[in-house]
């Protein structure tokens, strides 16, 4: 499906969601618009609905109330345009696949059923591995790698996928500093090229350096805006659900 001109990368309207068998909404009245090329940090405490929101955008959970549009199309009709780096626990790292096979999975959406990879697909995979500096690991079983290396493989797969909206669910957990920098460098290069990225994270210290926009959520949107506007002690306190007393010695730490 062709991209429609001047459409937001992501438009969420009146989204509420409740998991079957529970009594409380996991997400409540979410409205947000993200433009192409934006780099958005999704921040909130555990259980705040960060992962749920990403799963709904991807179609991993079924939408019941509200709407999600990706580049002007309903999210589920737009499969090839959305890529995910899931939370570490959602991947079976012990499964016997090699690094090259995992990166090639990024090309599957372009291959279609029953088709084998073309030379151009193999070239794309080689380039993606090169960019993430994992070429020397191509033949290794994914489970033999360190956490940082595994996450580079997932980013390489996203590069090979060549999607327009990238969803990264806590990609920085258990990742070394070198890999962290490499991941941010890659995401910055992608967003300069017009791709959109939504990255959930717990690391508030990273926000001023690497993101153009921050979305604080705790079941609903607590704050949304530029890093400098949003990253205040009051919003952090509201998002994480503790009372901020405004003592000068605390303010110093919270304001980073």
């Amino acid at each position: 499906m062709p991209p429609e001109a001047n459409q937001p990368a992501l438009a969420v309207e009146n989204l509420s969601f409740r998991y079957p068998g529970t009594t409380k909404n996991a997400l409540e009245s979410i409205n947000l618009t993200i433009k192409p090329g934006e780099r958005v940090a999704l921040v909130g405490p555990n259980g705040s609905g960060k992962s749920t929101l990403l799963k709904l955008i991807l179609g991993l959970e079924h939408l019941r109330t509200g709407s999600i549009m990706v580049y002007g199309h309903t999210a589920t009709s737009c499969r090839h345009r959305v890529a995910i780096v899931p939370q570490r626990a959602a991947v079976d790292w012990r499964f016997p696949v090699t690094v090259r096979q995992v990166v090639m999975m990024g090309r599957y959406v372009h291959l279609g059923w029953l088709k084998r990879p073309k030379p151009s697909d193999i070239e794309t995979v080689d380039q993606a591995m090169e960019m993430m500096k994992i070429t020397h690991l191509a033949g290794s079983q994914i489970g033999e790698l360190s956490g940082g290396q595994q996450q580079r493989v997932m980013i390489a797969r996203t590069l090979a996928h060549d999607a327009d909206l990238l969803l990264l669910d806590e990609p920085l957990n258990h990742v070394d500093i070198t890999t962290q920098e490499l991941i941010f460098h890659t995401i910055e290069a992608l967003s300069t090229a017009g791709k959109t990225a939504i990255i959930s994270t717990h690391d508030l210290g990273l926000l001023p350096v690497h993101f153009s926009r921050v979305l604080f959520i705790d079941r609903t949107i607590i704050a949304d805006g530029a890093v400098s506007e949003v990253l205040t002690p009051e919003t952090i306190a509201r998002a994480y659900g503790f009372e901020f007393h405004g003592k000068p010695e605390e303010k110093k730490w919270l304001n980073g």
Binding site: K55, L58, G59, L60, R79, H80, V82, A83, I84, P86, A90, V91, D92, F95, V97, Q101, V102, M105, Y108, V109, L111, L114, I142, R157, H161, A163
Partner: peptide, 21 residues
């Protein structure tokens, strides 16, 4: 033989397999 790719990707990473339909 026919669904080798699909078996591979759904086994390793279900979220990615949903992303690609």
């Amino acid at each position: 033989l026919l669904f080798y790719k699909e078996l591979l990707v759904t086994s390793f990473d279900p979220a990615h397999s949903v992303a690609i339909g």
